[in-house]
């Protein structure tokens, strides 16, 4: 890594750490939970986007159903906690392992069948829908009613009275995600994934067990998403099938990574920042301009325009703006 990049990373991390102090307390008189929450959402989306990016960007295994891992994590920890009385901190690693297992399982099934490209994307979408319908119908998940986690705001209970702590948790996850992505740019595993992404046949010819590596990366990506699922459940204390397995979360993960730059380390972070800022700005715009009553469609229109512009003019995402041209 170039010394300048290192400096930027350190500065960014420092800023992220002191951010709540600037907006959330000692410095400004009024404490702004809004500022903390929006930052949480950005970091959380960046982490999930990074999880998608590990498989979809670095390994080129584009998925439309990554929410299946997120939902698995959310439901596994919540069922263990609510139904079986586990401490959520203990349930978290189990949820992460479950996400990895589901990733490996989906990988084995779809890659054994030789599904690639858009076929793989579609099968992941189908898996996510199967899980959603399953969660809607079986008693263990309480069906469509969803699962409520009893509010008991103690840190040992994975619940925090102060949103600050969820912000720091999301920041930690985001840093872990960045480190994993950075490791992929430096390691044999990452080199093999890039080879598979660019040309599977050539990768095979050079001694890469393409099937095994693809299953591995999907397990890794699934475990990361599941980690996010548990955090979501613990923050909002409620999940139901459409929150945990809804297609919109899959799309968000994919958008965040693609807008920022799929297969790059900082792409998902930049994508998440842009997407959420646009969301907030259009909401404000909706409040200001009298003719617009509902900001939601406006945000979607702007998202759509951004995506069209990115795909058309910056197929490698916003990060390619920062890279010097050769």
């Amino acid at each position: 890594m170039a010394p300048r990049t290192k400096l930027w990373c350190a500065a960014g991390l420092l800023l992220a750490i002191i951010y709540p102090l600037l907006f959330g307390g000692p410095v400004l008189v009024t404490r702004s939970n809004y500022a903390i929450n929006i930052a949480f959402l950005i970091l959380f989306a960046a982490f999930l986007g990074q999880a998608w990016n590990i498989a979809g960007g670095f390994a080129g295994q584009t998925s439309f159903g990554h929410v299946v891992f997120f939902g698995t994590g959310a439901y596994v920890s919540t069922i263990l906690h609510v139904t079986h009385g586990w401490n959520p901190w203990l349930a978290w690693p189990v949820a992460i392992a479950a996400g990895g297992l589901v990733g490996a399982l989906i990988g084995v099934l779809s890659f054994r069948a030789g599904l690639r490209g858009s076929y793989f994307a579609l099968i992941t979408l189908a898996f996510a829908e199967v899980f959603r319908i399953l969660a809607n119908s079986i008693p263990q998940t309480r069906g469509g009613l969803g699962m409520l986690i009893k509010a008991d705001q103690r840190p040992e209970n994975f619940q925090f009275r102060d949103p600050l702590w969820f912000y720091y948790l999301a920041l930690a996850l985001c840093v872990v995600g960045l480190l994993v992505a950075w490791w992929l740019t430096r390691s044999r595993f990452g080199a093999r994934l890039a080879a598979i992404r660019d040309n599977e046949d050539a990768a095979k010819a050079l001694g890469i067990d393409v099937f095994r590596e693809k299953v591995r990366v999907l397990a890794l990506s699934g475990a990361m998403c599941a980690a996010g699922g548990t955090v979501y459940a613990q923050k909002y204390l409620f999940i139901d099938p459409s929150i945990a397995f809804g297609v919109d979360k899959s799309v968000e993960m994919l958008l965040v990574a693609m807008i920022g730059g799929a297969g790059t380390i900082f792409g998902p972070l930049i994508g998440a920042g842009v997407l959420h800022l646009v969301g907030e700005l259009t909401r404000d715009l909706g409040n200001v301009i009298p003719g617009i009553k509902n900001a939601q469609p406006l945000a979607l229109i702007v998202y759509g325009l951004i995506l069209v512009a990115i795909v058309g003019y910056l197929p490698n995402g916003l990060t390619s703006l920062f890279r010097r041209r050769r």
């Binding site: 080879a195 660019d198 046949d201 050539a202 010819a205 050079l206």
Partner: peptide
């Protein structure tokens, strides 16, 4: 190990 007649570089 084999090479390919139609070259298959990892283009990126």
């Amino acid at each position: 190990v084999r090479t390919f007649q139609i070259t298959q570089p990892f283009a990126r």
